[in-house]
Design a protein around this nucleic acid. Structure first.
Ligand SMILES: [Mn+2]
Ligand SMILES: [Mn+2]
Ligand SMILES: [Mn+2]
Ligand SMILES: [Mn+2]
Lengths: 218, 218
DNA sequence: AATAAAATTTAGATTAGTCTAAAAATATAA
DNA sequence: TTATATTTTTAGACTAATCTAAATTTTATT
């Protein structure tokens, strides 16, 4: 079995390898896990011993199939629990992440599958992130963000790239929630501040905010 | 915050103090937690520093109000999750304990209360154990067992004193589940083996089995 | 009351995960 | 291409939780 700590490292490496590609760096891992690079080196060695990662000194680290499977399974748990908390226990989308961080480590096949079934086999979590299926297949988002749109274009909000409470909370106030339709009315040339129409209301949002909103053009 | 380990010690001390009364012994704790007496002594000192228990060398240990509150809260979580697993995820009563042992440590007030509400504020868990309310009040069972009955008496099964998979599984085969009505038809004088009538079927069970079945006379 | 047995505590070691400070390797810049 | 900066690793130390073996205290038995 893997400790919570090991699982969190694998998850971090998985997420970084989606961005950084091959050879995830020690510093990047330390950064995400709020630990020190020296601690990361130690853990990487341990994970390498367990054949969870492949590793050459100074060359960064990569997940093996075994390591990827664990990471994806934890992410599956995380996202299913988030759905549960929102759909069944009426939590808001900005409240569920920390709880899911704990629940995800109860990594028992039967529990996960029963939960999935109970929730009706959801495809996305409350933040629009795709839920891996039980074989570990996961469909990644296209990653078109609101900030990529031009004036006049319309889109549906399908996800967020930033999961902080303050961001999610702010979005909700602006009614920029999953499924909402937006139309770009104006873009300030200087700093890409946008005027968008949501639910017939006009709202102004910064580039910082719009570049973290994943959308699908319509 | 308390570690999982600390919470498990507090829970063990709580359960033992219900049986042993004042001054829970080091050996008994070691026994329940499958650890060594010397480890228990170390942890007791730590819990005493945190004002979770009162402790005098060689005199056994007692929970403080603070320690009791934590223990009861963990037990509340445990039993609520067991209800969830059985009622919502269709687990059987012999499958839920180990999962609940993990889930119970996600000790977040809001989660517990929402779960309680979602489940319809259940009073008992799938094994008939009472669920403490949110203020920590808990109604203990009377502890009349099937083995206490005399020939001819009738009773309803309301709980079990033994939670092992094999016992629960066995009971289910005999249809001796919560809510079932039993009538004592015969008791062997030698070893208290019982003949009981359940659902119009006659069954024979050992004293070992009947003394772990909590019942309510009717 | 003295002695033997059982329970409990202490001493010293071990493992997982972390840290700081220093050394080594790699990347960047003059 | 040498010097500088950055990244990564190593060395050594710390804490939480555990263990074994030995010492101490309490309890039970003669
Ligand atoms: Mn999350
Ligand atoms: Mn999410
Ligand atoms: Mn249980
Ligand atoms: Mn139970």
């Amino acid at each position: 079995m893997n400790s919570f700590t090991e699982e969190n490292y694998l998850k971090a490496i998985y997420k970084l390898s989606l961005k950084e590609g091959q050879g995830v760096s020690t510093n990047a891992i330390a950064d995400i896990l709020k630990t020190k690079p020296s601690s990361v080196t130690d853990m990487i060695k341990k994970l390498a011993d367990k054949k969870m990662v492949s590793y050459q000194k100074y060359q960064g680290v990569n997940l093996t199939k075994k390591g990827r499977d664990v990471a994806v399974s934890i992410i599956r748990n995380h996202r299913l629990w988030e759905v549960f908390l929102v759909e069944k226990l009426n939590f808001k989308w900005d409240e569920v992440h920390d709880l899911a961080e704990e629940l995800e480590h109860i990594n028992t096949h039967k529990l996960t599958e029963r939960l999935d079934e109970f929730l009706g086999f959801p495809k996305f979590d409350p933040h629009g992130d795709p839920i891996p299926d039980k074989d570990g297949n996961i469909v990644q988002h296209k990653d078109i963000t609101l900030s990529d749109l031009s004036t006049g274009e319309k889109a549906v909000i399908v996800g967020v790239k930033e999961h902080s409470k303050s961001y999610l909370n702010y979005l909700e106030q602006l009614q920029l929630v999953l499924g909402a339709e937006v139309e770009v009315k104006d873009i300030v040339e200087f700093d890409a501040t946008m005027s968008v129409l949501v639910n017939k209301k006009q709202t102004i949002i910064s580039n910082q905010a719009s570049k973290n909103l994943i959308v699908k053009k319509i």
